[in-house]
Nucleic acid binder design. Structure first.
Length: 187
DNA sequence: CTTAGGATCGCCT
DNA sequence: GGCGATCCTAAGC
C-alpha cells in the first residue's frame, strides 16, 4: 500500500518523509510557501505524541497517511504534522518552518508583523500564518483547500537533533534546507 | 547574544 | 496537579 502525494510516498518511515518534504511547497487556500524545516516522530519514539498509543488528541496520527494531524501546543499555538506510515501506525512529520512565497499579505496580517524571515519560522508561527486550527485535523493533503507541490529542483538537506523536546533528544530527526535563512533555529 | 517569565489548556499521572 | 513537538517580550551581560 502506497500513498503518493506531490511525488512523495507517505507510507514510508517518518524520517524518510521528513527529508523528502524539504523543498516541497505547501499552500492552504493558496497561502504558504516552501518547507525548509521538518522533524520526524514515530510510534517507538518517547518524544512522539503517539508513543503512549491512540488518544482523542492524537487520533489522526493513527489514521490514514497523507493527512494532517493538528495539535494545540502550550494551550496557545496550533501546529501541523503530515501523517505517514500505514493506517494505525502513529507516525508523523512536524512542519517546523516555511519560506513564505505565496500570500505574503495574508500571512503578515495574520501574524501582525511584516518580517518575512519571522513569518513562518517555527511550528506555531506556521500555524498562525496559514490560519490553521483544529478544524484542519484529519484534512487530506491532496484535497482543497490544501495543496502540495513537488520541489522544483534537487535540494541539499542538513540534519540535526530535534528541538524543544526532553526525551530522545539525541535522535537526528530534524531536517532542513541547506543554508536557508528561514529556519526556526540554526542547525 | 543569552536567559527568564508569562500566556493558557488538554492530556496524563 | 504538572507539564509540554512554543512564542513573545524584557532584562541582563
Amino acid at each position: 500500500m502506497t500513498t503518493f502525494i506531490a511525488g512523495i510516498d507517505f507510507s514510508a518511515p517518518a524520517d524518510q518523509v521528513a527529508r523528502l518534504l524539504i523543498g516541497v511547497t505547501v499552500l492552504i487556500d493558496g497561502v504558504g510557501g516552501r518547507i525548509v524545516e521538518t522533524e520526524a516522530y514515530d510510534r517507538e519514539d518517547p518524544a512522539s505524541h503517539s508513543f503512549s498509543g491512540p488518544t482523542a488528541r492524537n487520533a489522526s496520527m493513527f489514521g490514514p497517511p497523507g493527512r494532517i494531524y493538528v495539535y494545540r501546543s502550550y494551550g496557545i499555538h496550533w501546529c501541523m504534522n503530515f501523517v505517514c506510515r500505514e493506517q494505525g501506525h502513529g507516525a508523523g512529520v512536524l512542519i517546523r518552518a516555511i519560506e513564505p512565497t505565496q500570500g505574503l499579505e495574508a500571512m503578515c496580517a495574520r501574524r501582525g508583523m511584516s518580517d518575512a524571515r519571522l513569518l513562518c519560522s517555527g511550528p506555531g508561527r506556521v500555524g498562525q500564518a496559514l490560519a490553521i486550527d483544529h478544524g484542519f485535523n484529519g484534512q487530506a493533503l491532496d484535497e482543497p483547500p490544501l495543496q502540495l507541490l513537488p520541489a522544483d529542483q534537487a535540494v541539499e538537506v542538513v540534519t540535526g537533533p530535534r528541538i524543544g523536546i526532553s526525551k530522545a533528544a539525541d535522535v537526528p530527526w530534524r531536517f532542513g534546507l541547506a543554508n536557508s535563512r528561514f529556519w526556526s533555529k540554526r542547525f
